[in-house]
C-alpha cells in the first residue's frame, strides 16, 4: 500500500483501541471518549510528521519520492519549491477562494493541480490521493500559525 508505514499502522491501531474503549463505554456515557495517552498522541503526531516530510520531498521535486508515490509532478525540471520556498506565497489559510487563473472557486487541492499542470507541465494527481494529502500536510504544517482568512485575495 503506497504511503503506508509502520507508524501509520501504529497510529491506526491506537485509534482502533481508543475507538473500542469509547464503544465499550457507550452504555455509561456516549458523550465522552477515553482520554488519549502520551503514546497514542505521539503516534498520531509521528504519522502526521511522516506525511509532512513526504510532502516536503514531493514539494521539492525529489524524484525518489515521486517514484514511490507513482506521480510525475513536473516535466520541466521545476519543483513547487522553486516558486514557493519554505511554502511561502501559497497561503493555504486563504483557501477556498475565487482563483483568477482558474476562473473558478477553488480549494487548495485544486490550485495544487493547476500548478502541476500549468507551470510544471506535470501530470495532475487525484485530489484525494496519498500524494495530495502529503503535499497538503507539508503546506499546512509550514504555514502553521498563519491567520485563517478564507476567501482573501
Amino acid at each position: 500500500m503506497k504511503g503506508m508505514s509502520k507508524r501509520y499502522l501504529l497510529a491506526a491501531g491506537c485509534a482502533v483501541c481508543v475507538g473500542l474503549g469509547v464503544f465499550g463505554a457507550v452504555q455509561e456515557s456516549a458523550a465522552h471518549k477515553d482520554p488519549h495517552d502520551a503514546a497514542t498522541l505521539k503516534a498520531f503526531q509521528d504519522l502526521f510528521m511522516e506525511q509532512v516530510i513526504l510532502g516536503d520531498r514531493l514539494f521539492h521535486g525529489d524524484p525518489e519520492a515521486q517514484q514511490e508515490m507513482g506521480v510525475n509532478l513536473s516535466k520541466t525540471g521545476m519543483a513547487c519549491a522553486m516558486c514557493h520556498p519554505i511554502s511561502s506565497d501559497i497561503h493555504p489559510h486563504e483557501f477556498p477562494k475565487f482563483q483568477e487563473q482558474m476562473s473558478e472557486f477553488a480549494t487548495l487541492r485544486d490550485m495544487v493541480n493547476w500548478c502541476i499542470e500549468k507551470p510544471n507541465e506535470g501530470e495532475v494527481i487525484d485530489v484525494n490521493s496519498e500524494a495530495m494529502k502529503a503535499l497538503e500536510a507539508y503546506m499546512y504544517w509550514s504555514n502553521k500559525g498563519s491567520v485563517l482568512d478564507p476567501g482573501r485575495h
Binding site: 510528521m49 520531498r57 519554505i86 511554502s87 511561502s88 497561503h91 504555514n143 498563519s146 482573501r152
Partner: peptide, 17 residues
C-alpha cells in the same frame, strides 16, 4: 502587491533535509 499577504503568513523552514 507581492508582499500584500506577508503579514498574514507565518512560515516554518523546511524539514525533510
Amino acid at each position: 502587491s507581492g508582499t500584500g499577504d506577508n503579514g498574514n503568513q507565518i512560515l516554518t523552514p523546511r524539514i525533510a533535509d
